[in-house]
Structure formats: C-alpha cells, structure tokens
Amino acid sequence: MKSELVCFWLAVALYGVSTFSYIFGLIARYDKLYLVGLLSALAGFLPHTASIGLRWAASGVEPFITISESITFGVFMAVLLFLVFQLTVKKVPPLGVLVMPTSFVLLGWAGTLIKEVATSLNPALQSAWLWVHIVGATTGFASVLIAAGLGLMYLMKEKDSAGIADRLPELSVLDTQSYRFVAGGFIMYGLMIVSGAYWSNTVKGNYWAWDPVEVWSLVSWLIYGIYLHLRVTFGWRGSKLAWYSLIALVVMIVSYWGIPFSLETFHSGFRIDHS
C-alpha cells in the first residue's frame, strides 16, 4: 500500500478512536475520555497532514481537485481549527462530540472515493483564485462546524448544568463563541463566493450564472446571513440559534459535498467542455 494511503487510513482510524472517546465520554459522563479524544484527534491530524502532503508532492497538482481530495482538505481545515481552538483560545472539552464524528464520517467517506493522483491540472484551474476559493470554502465549513459544536454544547449545558456540563463555559460565553464562528464562516463563505465570481469571470466571462453549485453556495451564505440577521436585528439568542446552527450544518454539508459533485455542473470534477 502506498505511504499516502497508509497515512490516510491511519488518520481515519485515529479520528475513529477520537470519535468514540468523545461519544463514550459523553454517555459515561467521564471527562478523561475527552482528553483521549483530543489527543487522538491531534495524533490523527499528523498522518492526515502527511497524506495530503504526499499526494501533493507526488504530482505537484493542488490536493483539492477531486471530490475525495476536496472532502479530505475540508476535514483537514475543520480539525486544524478545532485543535487550535481547543489548545489555545477557549477550552470546551466536549466540543469534539460533534466535530470529530463529523470529521471521521466525512474522511471515511472520502476514503471510499479516492482516485489516482491527477497528472496535470485542468487549464481552467491554473489560477491563484483556486487557492482563495478553496481556503474560503474549507475555512467557512470549519467555522460553521465548530459553531454548531458550540451550539450543541449550549444545548447540553442548558438541559443539564450538573456534572461535565458544569465545567463548560457559561451559556452566554458559548452563545457568543458560536456566533463569532458563524460570523467568521459567513465571511469565509463570502470570500469563497467573491473569489469564485472573479475566477468565473476570467474563465467564462460571467461572474454568476445560477449554476447549481453557485446556487448552493448562495443557499449556505443566505442561511448564515439569516442567522446573523436573527441575532443582530431580531435579538435572537441562546437555544433557538443553537438549534439553528445545528440544522444549518446539515444543509451546509449537503450543499458543499452532497450535491455539487453529483450533478453535471461547472464543479463536477471541474470539467469544462473545451473539445
């Protein structure tokens, strides 16, 4: 087996360990398992990074062109942001309860879709906008995933503030943190849409064509735009927005990976009729 694949599946396995540690930690109310979950996520992140690096080095083609690579890179950004948040900014031990199972399932799914490394990059993708676009999309996903995780923490603490939930930050802190991650995700989705519009303008001469993927990205952006309006203009706080962020995450995953690559669109493996 290629070293790239060994690293990849090792990362999946360690994310699996992390997932079950978090879930059993939550069920058994045993918070030491959260530490196991965090450490195994950190341990899985290393081979995850290595697998992306090895694949990239093998061909020199950016490692986010196929659906498998796109999911792998998205999960990479999500785990990176999760680890940075957990280790530096604000410690919310059970946060991985949502982040790591999502990462584990998505990365496992990506593993079933792995194809050979592309030997060359489609001419339409030979643009610096590609990086801006992908970084915007993946960081946006990472942000809203953590926002949803914080929303889940909010709901857990609100339901039962005893035990492990007692060691979570105050409800208002969780609410504010979740809002900030949504705002960050909204900006990054904005960056994704703007860079996509510029890129499309260079390649096709139009900035918006109501392509299904464009519409899905608009759907994601509107969903979080509505979230922000509900909070800022209508004063929504707390559990309502926490539920909203969890439901929005499902739509987000569908819009990001579920639909675009299954339809004949500009983004379907980035095919362009150029015969």
Binding site: L218, L222, I226, H229, L230, T233
Partner: peptide
C-alpha cells in the same frame, strides 16, 4: 427577513 427566506426557498 421574509425576502431572505423567500429567496432562500426559491434557491
């Protein structure tokens, strides 16, 4: 808000 939701539903 109604317009945002309506456009979202249309999309």
């Amino acid at each position: 808000m109604a317009l945002l939701v309506a456009i979202l539903v249309c999309c």
